[in-house]
Each structure stands twice: as structure tokens, then as C-alpha cells.
Design a protein around this nucleic acid. Structure first.
Length: 194
DNA sequence: TGCAAACCATAAC
DNA sequence: GTTATGGTTTGCA
């Protein structure tokens, strides 16, 4: 049985789906209705679920973390994600995305190179990212450093990235899963918007 | 700039 | 097994 909890924090509604304390999906939205709609989109189907309108204590803690991530704050202990039901390649892409540090962005192509796949597949994986905003799909942009698509709207992604500015100026190379991932300061992208 | 073709794992059929 | 589908990229005019 999957338990779904929502909570309004700072004018945004966050939602999580828990299966034995592990996160099966997470999402957010302007109001509760939108947050729920968003989380249902990526819930593994053919599993029973129940929506709780009063968050349990363990759920409250995770919801608070979601809000912190959303506000661009550093969150140390990322909650456990349930990925068993996902294909291997998808897991790899999600894991690599998770490695993009706060204050940096990367491109679909860079992720693709790191996981040995194609850029469009990365986009497709992100489009159905069940763990927004924990898996920071908003930190992936196009190779010309303009914004690609975003499930929650381009305005939302720009706002998120603005909050993640940390004043970095140099690109960085990371080793993830044995592959190399190049990341760039968020500022590179935001230049086009400010 | 703008367009076409290559890209490649998934899900749906 | 086959096909359609992308939150892309690259190359060429």
C-alpha cells in the first residue's frame, strides 16, 4: 500500500508517495490539487494507494526536506528513493542527475555521455522523473545553455535555478558511475534571463 | 538563424 | 518484434 501525503509550505504544495518509508514518488505544485495531479502522473500503476490529508511525522520530515530543496537550500540527508521497479538505464540516469551539485547545471548531452546513451533518452527520462525536485532535473539544460522543457513550466525552472545561485564561475568535471560529467555554474544559464 | 537528420531506451501495440 | 515517441544535438545551407 502506497501512502500519499501533502503539505503546504511557503506557498507551494509538496506531495510524497511512501511505500514502507521509502519514497516511490515526489512532486509539488501551486496548490494541493496540482501537486496531487503531478504525483499521480509518475506513480507506478497497478499498486494500491491511499491519500492522507494529515501528514504523519515521518512524512512531515520528508516534506520539509522537499521544501528546502525547492528553496535552493543544501539538504544533507536525501531521503531513500524506491527505484526497484525502474529500468536499469533509467536508474543510472537518475543517479547521475542526483550527482549534479547545488549551484551547477549540466546538459542533456553531458549526462548522456556519462551514462553511455543518447541525449533524447535523457530528456525522456527526465520528462517522467518521479522524484521532482529531489532528483534535480531542473539542473539539466540544453547544450546552448538555454532552457529545455520542464514539467512544471519554464517559469518554475528559472525561479528554482535563481534560488540555487552560489556565485560559482568555473566549470567542473565530476566522476559519476565511472563516467565523466561536466557541470557549469547556474549563472551561465541565468544570464539569458536576468 | 533555421531545418533535417541522427540519436537511443521505453512503452505501447 | 515492431513502431512511435521525446524536456536533444549536430551539421550544413
Amino acid at each position: 500500500m502506497i501512502e500519499i501525503y501533502t503539505e503546504n509550505l511557503n506557498n507551494t504544495c509538496f506531495a510524497i508517495a511512501l511505500n514502507h518509508q521509502r519514497i516511490t514518488a515526489s512532486s509539488f505544485g501551486a496548490d494541493q490539487k496540482t501537486a496531487l495531479k503531478n504525483i499521480f502522473r509518475n506513480l507506478p500503476f497497478n499498486v494500491a494507494f491511499q491519500v492522507f490529508y494529515e501528514p504523519a511525522t515521518c512524512a512531515k520530515d520528508i516534506l520539509l526536506k522537499l521544501s528546502c530543496i525547492y528553496e535552493g537550500k543544501e539538504v544533507k540527508a536525501i531521503p531513500l528513493l524506491e527505484t526497484l521497479h525502474l529500468p536499469a538505464y533509467t536508474k543510472k540516469v537518475l543517479k547521475t542527475t542526483l550527482a549534479i551539485p547545488l549551484g551547477y547545471v549540466t546538459s542533456y548531452g553531458s549526462i548522456a555521455k556519462a551514462v553511455d546513451g543518447g541525449p533524447r533518452t535523457v530528456g525522456k527520462t527526465m520528462a517522467s522523473n518521479p522524484f521532482a525536485p529531489i532528483v534535480p532535473c531542473h539542473r539539466i539544460v540544453k547544450s546552448d545553455s538555454t532552457l529545455g522543457g520542464y514539467g512544471f513550466g519554464l517559469k518554475a525552472i528559472a525561479e528554482l535555478l535563481r534560488k540555487e545561485k552560489r556565485g560559482f564561475s568555473d566549470m567542473k568535471k565530476l566522476i559519476v558511475n565511472g563516467g565523466q560529467l561536466t557541470v557549469y555554474p547556474v549563472e551561465n544559464v541565468l544570464r539569458n534571463f536576468d
